[in-house]
C-alpha cells in the first residue's frame, strides 16, 4: 500500500527520535485504516499532549491536538456532534492514565463509540524522561533517581474493568498483528482501546540499560505471549511478559445509540 496517501508529506520528517516505536504505531494505524477502506474525510484523529500526540499532525485527516490529558473529552463531544465520523484518539501512558485517567475510565464506562490508542512507553518522553504511571517499579527516570517507588497501572485491565466493549494489547514488533488489532478496535461499536507497547530508547531505554532501540523492540517480541497461551501460565511465569491479543470483546449497549433512542422518545412526547 502507498502510505503517503494518508500522510501530510510536507510535514515530514517526524519529530520522533531515531528508534522510537511511535513511527511504527503510525504505520500500523494507516495500514488498518487502509484495510478498512475508510475515507479520509470521515476520520477524526484527536490527540493529547506528548510524543503520541504528535501523530495527529502527520495524518491527512481531520486532526485535533488538544490539551494534556483531555483528548478523550474533546473526542466525546466531537462524536456526539458527528456520530457518523470515525473518531480515533492517540494518547500516551502519562496523557491517558495520569492527567487524563479520569476521562479514560469514564469514556469506557459510558461505552461511547470511539477508539483510543494508548502508546505505552513507560515514561514521559517529550518532557525528558520523567516517571509515569506505567514505569516499572524500581526503574529509573529523571524524577525517579532512586528508582520508581510506585506500582504501575494495567491500562488494558483498567479499561476492561471500566466497561469498554473492546480492549487489546500489542507490541510494535509485529506491525501486521498490531495493525489487525487496531482495525478490530476501530470496527467495534462501542468504546475500544488498544494498548501499544512502544519502546522509548532515548528517554527510558538508555537510563535503564535496555540495550539499543532495536534490542528493545526485539525484547518486547520475546516478552510477548498470546492471551490464550497466557491463560494456562502461572502469575510467576507471566512476570515480565507482555500479554498480547484481544483481551476483551463483548457486546454492550453503545452510548450514542442509546442516546438516539432518548431523542426519539423525547420527540414523541
Amino acid at each position: 500500500m502507498d502510505y503517503s496517501q494518508y500522510l501530510r508529506n510536507d510535514k515530514l520528517p517526524y519529530i520522533w527520535c531515531a528508534g522510537c516505536g511511535d513511527r511504527i504505531v503510525l504505520k500500523a494505524i494507516l495500514r488498518a485504516i487502509h484495510d478498512l477502506g475508510l475515507e479520509k474525510d470521515e476520520i477524526a484523529m484527536v490527540a493529547g499532549i506528548g510524543c503520541s500526540g504528535r501523530t495527529a499532525g502527520y495524518v491527512d485527516f481531520n486532526t485535533l491536538h488538544t490539551t494534556h490529558g483531555r483528548a478523550i473529552t474533546f473526542a466525546t463531544g466531537l462524536k456526539m456532534a458527528r456520530p457518523d465520523m470515525t473518531v480515533i484518539v492517540v494518547s500516551g501512558d502519562g496523557d491517558a492514565t495520569a492527567i487524563g485517567g479520569n476521562h479514560l475510565i469514564h469514556a469506557a464506562r459510558r461505552n461511547i463509540d470511539i477508539t483510543v490508542l494508548v502508546y505505552n512507553n513507560h515514561i514521559y518522553g517529550m518532557t525528558g524522561g520523567q516517571v509515569s504511571p506505567t514505569t516499572p517499579m524500581g526503574d529509573f527516570a529523571t524524577t525517579a533517581p532512586y528508582g520508581n517507588l510506585e506500582n504501575t497501572f494495567d491500562i488494558s485491565g483498567l479499561t476492561i474493568a471500566a466497561g469498554a466493549s473492546f480492549v487489546a494489547r500489542s507490541a510494535v514488533a509485529d506491525i501486521k498483528y498490531l495493525s489487525n488489532l487496531i482495525g478490530q478496535a476501530i470496527s467495534k461499536k462501542g468504546f475500544s482501546l488498544v494498548e501499544v507497547m512502544t519502546p522509548c530508547y532515548i528517554a527510558y531505554g538508555r537510563m535503564n540499560e535496555k540495550g539499543s532501540a532495536a534490542q528493545m523492540i526485539l525484547d518486547q517480541r520475546e516478552e510477548a505471549v498470546d492471551v490464550e497461551e497466557a491463560k494456562s501460565m502461572s502469575p510467576e511465569d507471566l512476570q515480565d511478559r507482555i500479554v498480547v491479543g484481544v483481551l476483551a470483546d463483548r457486546e454492550l449497549p453503545e452510548y450514542i445509540a442509546t442516546y438516539d433512542r432518548v431523542i426519539s422518545q423525547a420527540q414523541q412526547r
Binding site: L64, M80, A81, H103
Partner: peptide
C-alpha cells in the same frame, strides 16, 4: 461529564463538529 474539565473539552469538540 465526569468533571468540569471534561465538560469544557466536550463542548469544544462538539463545536468543531458543527454543533
Amino acid at each position: 461529564m465526569e468533571d468540569e474539565i471534561a465538560a469544557m473539552g466536550a463542548v469544544i469538540g462538539a463545536s468543531l463538529g458543527g454543533m
